[in-house]
Amino acid sequence: MDFTTFVKPNGNGSELDNGAGGDASSQELQFWKHVAYIENHGKQEDDYEYCMTEFLRMSGIYWGVTALDIMGQLDRLERKYIIEFVKRCQCPTTGGFAPCEGHDPHMLYTLSAVQILCTYDALDEIDCEAVVRFIVGLQQPDGSFFGDKWGEVDTRFSFCAVATLSLLKRMEQTIDVEKAVKFVMSCCNQTDGGFGSKPGAESHAGLIFCCVGFLSMTHRLHLLDVDKLGWWLCERQLPSGGLNGRPEKLPDVCYSWWVLSSLTIMGRLHWISSEKLQQFILSCQDTETGGFSDRTGNMPDIFHTHFGIGGLSLLGHARLKPINPTLCMPQHVIDRLGLQPQILERP
């Protein structure tokens, strides 16, 4: 990822950092260091990482843009350049978005592109009808969605489809919502109430987020077995306070988002220890360079930085703006769009 080109000149906020080091500071949010981390991401033009991650650039921009907006620092990036980049990635034939020029359009990057444009209130810059056609064209007779024309099916793509259409306010009268719901519910495992990528596939916190988010957008949360699924999600919290994504796996900051947002949508955030989770997320900050890593002591990256900030926002961190648990975007953007994804009340 390269954000250097999006950063406005003089955009250097690190002078405001208190600069304290050592153990105590690691438990405080290194706010300005994270801002600087995102700004400087991929600064070396010939950075090998930059080249290796080109295939998901659009999502990378969404992660950075969202995290910065949650921190109230979106104006550090050059809106105009980002929107130009996004526009260049729309495929003139299919209407879908590629992660970067020269790559193929895909459901995943189409959602990221629309999320970025919504955050910037710039949907009028692209051909939204073409996006709708792209998504409608990928729905299958069984209600599932292909990720692109080559035919891979996954519940992630069901999420992407309804999220994109919701943001465009075109979910009604475009796709077959009933069938889409039926397919997602066919991926629910009766053994634990969780969801996998396909019917029968193992329950996985990331895919549970996709399916719960899908049901939230389609207002079908009553189909969830909240007690069983909630049990499984709570078991993801480990003694370190961190959450894993499946049984017997290591904790990972990105699951703090996926598990936490699912529990939030289900009105069951209080079923895990927020305090311990917050401690775990903060322990994954890189106190020198800024940014979050998957686990304490590892190298930070933009993906975990986004989900670390998002998780802290859901936990109500005072320095962060609220984030919407279903769409993983700043709540003020969702409010501006007038969207109300379903959320269950705390019992």
């Binding site: 390269d2 080109t5 999006f6 033009e45 980049f85 260049r88 970067c100």
Partner: peptide, 10 residues
């Protein structure tokens, strides 16, 4: 460090 978008995208 180039400061245009060109190396980001192409």
């Amino acid at each position: 460090m180039p400061s245009t978008t060109e190396h980001l995208v192409s």
